[in-house]
Simulated assay, not measured.
Amino acid sequence: MSLERQVKAKLAAKRNPEQDKEAQKWIEDVLGKKFPAGQLYEDVLRDGVILCELINKLAPGSVPKVNTSGGQFKFMENINNFQEAIKRYGVHDVDVFQTVDLYEKKDIAQVTNTLFAIGRATYKHPEYKGPRLGPKPADEHHPEFTEEQLKSGQTVIGLQAGTNKGASQAGQNMGAGRKIILGK
């Protein structure tokens, strides 16, 4: 099996059709319109128009100009504008798919993961009252310690450091040199 085929097989195995359906339903619910019948999920998203409409619905004015025609360059521009807008919305760089993942259908699973990341980001926008996608992210918790608690921790050796119970230097050859025999 060629390397290219192995890579394609690995990417296809990562893809979860149920998550694709869940992401599609969420987009349809947010936008209030269904995907065109008979078209594949990735084909509908490929030109970036639906994605730009999605982020504009979540954060109005995020992508001011959406290209509905103009070919490959214009559609890839839509995708790039969408990516920049979702970063401003709160999606981390590591959660954003690469343009070729969608436009060339290289990694549709990553596109779906990005949509789930947008769904998680909606929880951080209290003004958003629409449908949600994915679980609510955990809130950060910053414990506060008193000065006394902090000082008491300085005298304790944590268990991560291990223990010296039962340790000895038996078997170590401290101070004795190695005997090196030189051959002829």
Rank of each mutant, 00 (worst) to 15 (best):
E28F: 06
K25Y: 10
K74T: 08
L58Y: 11
I50C: 03
V44H: 05
D93N: 14
D29R: 10
V63F: 02
Q72G: 13
N67D: 12
I27V: 15
E28W: 07
Q72W: 12
K33L: 02
E77M: 09
R88L: 12
L58R: 11
F75R: 07
A85S: 13
L54A: 03
V44R: 06
W26R: 09
L31E: 09
K87F: 12
F82G: 01
L51C: 04
I27K: 00
N56R: 05
I27T: 03
N67L: 05
F73V: 10
N80I: 10
D43L: 08
Y89E: 05
Y41A: 00
H92A: 14
A37E: 13
K34A: 15
I86P: 05
R46D: 00
N67H: 15
V91M: 09
I50N: 00
V49L: 02
E53R: 12
A23C: 05
E28R: 06
P64K: 12
L45R: 02
E84T: 15
Y89P: 01
E42M: 06
D93C: 02
N80E: 15
G32Y: 11
A23L: 02
V30H: 06
F75E: 12
A85Q: 01
N80S: 14
K87D: 06
L54R: 01
I27A: 01
P36T: 07
V91E: 07
G32K: 11
L58G: 09
K57D: 03
P60N: 03
V44Y: 06
L54K: 01
C52G: 04
E42I: 05
D43P: 00
G32D: 11
K25Q: 15
K33V: 04
A85I: 07
C52W: 03
V44E: 03
F35H: 06
E42T: 10
D29C: 03
K74M: 12
G48P: 08
V49E: 06
I27P: 02
K33S: 13
Y41C: 00
L40I: 02
K74V: 04
E53Q: 15
K25P: 00
D29T: 11
Y41H: 11
Q24V: 11
A37G: 06
I27Q: 01
E22A: 15
E77D: 14
Q39L: 13
Y41E: 01
N67C: 05
R46Q: 15
T68Y: 15
G32Q: 12
E28I: 07
Q24K: 15
K57N: 11
T68P: 00
I55D: 04
C52S: 10
E42H: 11
L45M: 09
M76C: 13
F35I: 02
L51E: 04
N67S: 12
Y41K: 04
I79H: 04
E53A: 08
I27H: 00
V30P: 04
Y41F: 15
A37M: 05
G48Q: 06
L40M: 14
K25H: 12
E42L: 01
D29G: 03
E28L: 04
N56S: 06
Q39S: 13
I86H: 05
D93T: 14
D43G: 03
